[in-house]
Nucleic acid binder design. Sequence first.
DNA 1: GTGGATAATTGAATCGATTCATATTTTGAA
DNA 2: TTCAAAATATGAATCGATTCAATTATCCAC
Lengths: 336, 336
Amino acid sequence: MAVIGVRDVAASAGVSVGTVSNVLNSPGKVSAGTVKRVQAAITKLGFVRNDAARQLRAGRSRSIGLVVLDVANPFFSDVARGAEERAAEQGLAVLLGNSDENIDRESAYLDLFEEQRVLGVLISPLGDVGGRLAGLRASGTPTVLVDRQTDDQNFSSVAVDDVAGGYLAVSHLTSTGRTRIAFVGGPHALRQVADRLAGARKAIAEHTGATLESIDTDSLSVLQGRAVGEQLRARNPADRPDAVFAANDLLAIGVLQAFSMLGDVQVPRDVALIGYDDIAFASAAVVPLSSIRQPSALMGYTAVDLLLREAADGEAFEHEQIEFQPELVVRESTGG
Amino acid sequence: MAVIGVRDVAASAGVSVGTVSNVLNSPGKVSAGTVKRVQAAITKLGFVRNDAARQLRAGRSRSIGLVVLDVANPFFSDVARGAEERAAEQGLAVLLGNSDENIDRESAYLDLFEEQRVLGVLISPLGDVGGRLAGLRASGTPTVLVDRQTDDQNFSSVAVDDVAGGYLAVSHLTSTGRTRIAFVGGPHALRQVADRLAGARKAIAEHTGATLESIDTDSLSVLQGRAVGEQLRARNPADRPDAVFAANDLLAIGVLQAFSMLGDVQVPRDVALIGYDDIAFASAAVVPLSSIRQPSALMGYTAVDLLLREAADGEAFEHEQIEFQPELVVRESTGG
DNA sequence: GTGGATAATTGAATCGATTCATATTTTGAA
DNA sequence: TTCAAAATATGAATCGATTCAATTATCCAC
């Protein structure tokens, strides 16, 4: 007997397959004695439900797909943890896909999740996936955008007001007397990056005399931050910005590493530095890092919640765009 | 037509379902013209393969389950990334499960993966899961232990020699003149913790005059490290250790946060500090952290590789226990 | 006891892609 | 042309849990 199935259990317990299924799914419908007998048979034979068969019949899987830009970024692992928490409350699993800021991988994960008929998809999108997601929804897979607000009323989203966040960060820099600000981040196709920069511009506009330089990076990683840091350090001190606003904490930490490695650029004396996300490591950095805090785990939790509601209500569901407000956290890196 | 299936595609392209399946799985068997016609129909109808049906027939899923102790730990996200890379090369997906050092969650993920008939399981085990895993293998799901060496020849494993790592760490501390060493870590049921402590003991034994104090933690997190740090800081300076070996970098960073928050305990002047894992944030810490480096991504990559080989060879497979050597990375926190 | 209701159980039909033995078409050698 | 071999194509049977209409058992009131 290669694989133990419900039929085997049924035979062993002396009941029908339907009854075995009922014991598994709605024990209330079955008499106590029968439940006991069937469960004994299950244990004796070591029966394990075949999820594929279950899903085939049900038409839907019991997992949620989550596509993030970078698993190595603590911000996203916090989002994932929050999502997992809410999903676990419903006995659902979260499949984690890492797009690594790569559009082909993002697309591959969406394909995979679609074939798996997941209950829904949570995505922190890289490029323009609107069409793709509309298709998904049309085929019955609801989608929630994470960390990306959208004006498209057809999607639910959970995000932080990144324009406000950028504004907070740069206002803080100018209010502490900095005037030559550099924004470090990229790619600009990421809405997070674009919005944070927009917020920065807004703050600059309100502060006459302050200037903003934008330095592009290929991704939001420690390594890219370090490269920018090296480059800034190599500049003539007079040409250097007196403050850097990095699009996330990983970049900020990279910049900080480059600055402190040789010690000739001091933070915050020579250059003030502020990041974004307020990951757990920000407060433990060489120079504790000022940052913009986002409720990351809560965002994941909320996103799954929206997803479940949409999955339950179907067509009738009113999409919600939830926007959290970011919060300025001042630490030593900006002189705080 | 609620859902588009192979039958619909077949009808639309004027071929049989068998041919559609062949186009999908072995296009070589089908004439070029037919392939084109079928693909056109697929596109036209927006057909998406139902993975559940596929798996049901195949008997196995095309994903690999990975259970880690803590997704928020960069060490494990690196392992995950390595695993994902190798899996992607074979068109497989990795399902990431976070046990959060909780034995029930670990067990729940194993249940889930078993029901999903995953191709195999990679696990960084929490407690004693030997029996459980033997059962899994018996039912055709190979398992590879990650970050845990085992003398059990029945399992493949990928690990780092943690006894050697602990030895390296503490030898480094004693060789820089430290004598009152504290080991911070827990729970000791984790083999990583026990082994690192054993290595530390070995190093102490070789250095007359050095003593080792062991401070237990509930988990390997920044928060727990901070708690220990507070506690050490509150001690009378004479009773304080002059060096701390933390069982991983998260703990070390927590300890460091506690020490530097009020500034009365200086690293490395008053207390030298060394961690374990050499995560990316170690070098960016308040005081750049000495650590023991593990080839984390390579471990994940290798683990999937072993898994695939076992899955391919079946019973005949010779289990391999691969052990990498750790490497000492000296930075400022130990005066380096 | 009996009728009527409720509770418990049954098992054939179903989900959709794949398989594989069989049937059909194409190819090219004689 | 003819025919065997090779290349293509067919479609009924299959994987295993679930569903639900139909059947049987149990219970209670009169």
